[in-house]
Design a protein around this nucleic acid. Sequence first.
DNA 1: ATAGGGTTAG
Length: 626
Amino acid sequence: MKQVLQIQAQLVTYAPPFLDPNFAAVKLIGICAVHCKLRQAALIFSQLADPNVFAWNAILKAHSYNHNWSYTLHYFNCQLSSPTAPAPDEYTFTSVLKACAGLMAVLDGCKVHAVVVKTSFNFNIFVQNSLIDMYFKFGNSDIAQLLFDEMLVRDVVSWNTLVSGYSLCGNVELARWVFDKMPVKNLVSWSAMMAAYARSGDLEAARQLFDVMPERNVVSWNAMIAGYAQNEKYSNAINLFNEMQKTGNVRPNDVTLISVLSACAHLGAFDLGKWIDRFISRSGMELSLFLGNALVDMYAKCGFIVEARRIFDKMQERDVISWSIIISGLAMHGHAEEAFEYFFEMLDCGVMPNEVTFMGLLSACTHSGLVDKGLKYFNMMDHIYGITPKIEHYGCVVDLLSRSGRLVEAEDLINSMPIEANVIVWGALLGGCRIYGDIERGERVVQRILELDSEHSGSYVYLANVYASVGRLDDAAKCRLNMRENKVMKTPGCSWIEVHNAVHEFFMGDRSHPQSDIIYATISDLMLRMKLAGYKPKTDLIVHSIDEEEKENALSTHSEKLAMAFGLISTSKGTTIRVVKNLRVCNDCHEATKFISRIVEREIIVRDRSRFHHFKDGKCSCNDYW
DNA sequence: ATAGGGTTAG
């Protein structure tokens, strides 16, 4: 790029007469495109007195290559309306059709198709393939198939387009049928078929294809890694990334790193996440919008909100996703005021919020108990920005109202919802009934929940707890029996911790870890010291056993305590402990962790399914409100 | 001199 600028400067001051300016511009624009420097490309193009068809195609390609679909169509419009511009050719149409597909601009696409037919470019195989691809992306597989059938000559790209097209339309079987039928396969054919399986959720079939592929490039690896990451197989994604590094002949690119960062974010695998950050700086890789977003999200979800902000501030370009990520990140850490500040800054930058942005704002309110502010944002969504609240938003607001004891309003809101409430929304209200001991309402809510999901474990546990707390032990027992008979399973509590680049996973009562004995010994020791410091196990949370000692035991083997104990014995004194949990952190563990942070003089950061808890010196950042 | 198909974030 540096040399592009030098050449450009040279051409402005002195253009040699033997050099065709269009020729030079095509070359320079091509380099700008590869480096995502579209403004520079546009400048070079605008300085041409008389752009020829090569120059027009170059500027169209530069924008479509960078997924800047609307600018592609903008330039195409300019070309059509300018009296001096050359007529479009087959090269023009491939870029333009791609842009229509990317924009899902069905009407424009059909119009371009009409022009293609009128100008007889519909016999060019490149244009034909682009048309087929476009109709698949519009979801119109019938027309796509028709165009394919009418082709006189087909090449491997035509077949590949069919495979990926059917995959896009959700028809893996047909994609496989085409894949088996195609006369010649290349690397892209294999990758497309593999991606089709991954997209359909059949990771075994995808992996099998990946393993037998005759050759692989970075895109094949990316497709498999992304397949794992998008199907929540985060450890598999990371393992495959490590394998890719080991083979040594394929260099990860930004797409690879984005998928791996997403896996790191979900797992809280910050060692690898930080390594990727350094890798990016070290290799001089451009911090693209996607990559920046993935990095910010990784840091925020791994508990490094300061680092997340550092990357966010460093980004050249930010879109609504970037802002939503930083807002939800701040919300997760309980920094509600900063989340609001970023929201207003976002508006100042002219970026329109969407439904995800509002999820971030609402959860910021939930985590800080800002009920009225939450209601204000909730109303703002529809009234000011025309965004119809989705079930998640209702869930958030019901949670907000319920937690603060405004149960009547919460129930009214559910009953006034234009969409059917789900188990999560009712569950939020049930949580409020539990906290505020509203037994009558709770019973009603449980009934509604069990109508929707007869195996809702939370309801059974809730009922058993309520009965036990008011001394109706027979009813409590009946409820537990009921639960067992209906085979209601609670999601098993699971926590994990990253130590020395490896993620260690613990389930409740887990004894499968090689260092299990010493982990349990550590917990017993801690329990003793905690009790001396005034800790009282919250055994009233346990419903299924009677013996007090047994209850304490059950509490002490909660997965987060196991992960924490493992962290304490495997890291040096003073190191921050970071644990991730799949469920909400339980009341007892929350209390215990406060004590532990003081006893061992460590900062302990727990990410549960909805937020972060920073424990330090016997206190938690959530101020016991979560 | 310029082109089509497989991979990416909340």
